[in-house]
Design a protein around this nucleic acid. Structure first.
Lengths: 168, 168
DNA sequence: CCTCATTACTACAACGTTCAACTACTCGTT
DNA sequence: AACGAGTAGTTGAACGTTGTAGTAATGAGG
């Protein structure tokens, strides 16, 4: 577990010393890696079984419900969800087929497409919300102290900022 | 995605005692949600561009390199990586085709299959490791204080433990 | 030594995501 | 007004993951 996978002496290319992680750092990083995987698996299962929605679909509904007029441009939605345009198009196509959202080309900009939350979509969201909130509490919020949760949020905000500052 | 109506007990009539998240909790949860997404996207990109491996494949190589004799049973590997058996079979099939691992049926238990790291796989891992460690440092470890990182690890350990205690 | 249950893995089909075109529209130039 | 550059969104193929069977080896009870 704390054993270095590779003999560092044979590893480092000459002239480029690699700053390996020490034991504590490695344990923390592994816990993060498997912990996020386990957490999101559980949240996804809970939501899927309890409300017939994937986490992605749920997030789409939430963002639309928060938007003025329950309408958002596809590009804005994609950016908020950190999804590719293509991915969002496919997701929205499925959700439109299911009657949760509807699309129409933007009046202001002929290139753009507005995505709107339908009444059925809003109903689905309202049914799903308590299930999802309970799940997030059970798996995450109620497992940690308030300070732990806020520290987690702060840490990921820093990480997010750093990544975006270096790319996209 | 089925049209099956939600059980009415999960439907929230006005006044149902749902313990919603307060503003701070919600901000933290959202930061975690998008932060992990942004982080793993970046780590995956870095590794893919720098060493031609996906994060999953890298993790497979790491686990095998740490195992005695560089051999692990498929089921053990699947459990360590928190992947379904099916998913691991596909991943290993691709990696075997690429020459990174090899499979042979276990001598001890005729039902089992042993997965072994090949020399080529080890070479690939040794080439990828410095790239990946640098990436993890840049995106995560060096962005946080040591205490922040350890706190993150501790929090996810707790979450992991909670989830597993309630399910599989 | 059958048989039935269990364990371990694979095969196939359905689904979601990514990548690389492609269409349609807008805006700044000339 | 017409061109070209840039932006917005869609499409389809390829790829990876998941879920549902299905096969093969093992082990316990009759």
């Amino acid at each position: 577990m704390t054993q270095t996978p590779i003999d560092t002496s044979t590893e480092a290319p000459p002239g480029t010393p690699v700053r390996w992680l020490d034991a504590e750092q490695q344990v923390a990083w592994r816990a993060l890696l498997t912990g996020t995987s386990v957490l999101f698996d559980a949240l996804g299962r809970d939501l899927e079984h309890g409300a017939g929605l994937s986490l992605n679909e749920y997030e789409v509904l939430v963002r639309l419900s928060e938007a003025p007029g329950r309408v958002l441009r596809m590009s804005v939605l994609a950016e908020e969800l950190v999804h590719s345009r293509s991915r969002l198009t496919h997701t929205i196509s499925r959700m439109e087929r299911a009657g949760l959202v509807s699309r129409c080309s933007s009046a202001q900009d002929g290139r753009g497409v507005d995505c709107m939350l339908t009444d059925a979509g809003r109903a689905q969201l309202e049914a799903a919300a308590p299930v999802h909130v309970a799940s997030v509490r059970r798996r995450l919020v109620d497992v940690l102290t308030r300070d732990q949760l806020l520290a987690l949020g702060a840490a990921f905000s820093q990480i997010d900022e750093e990544v975006r500052s270096h790319f996209g």
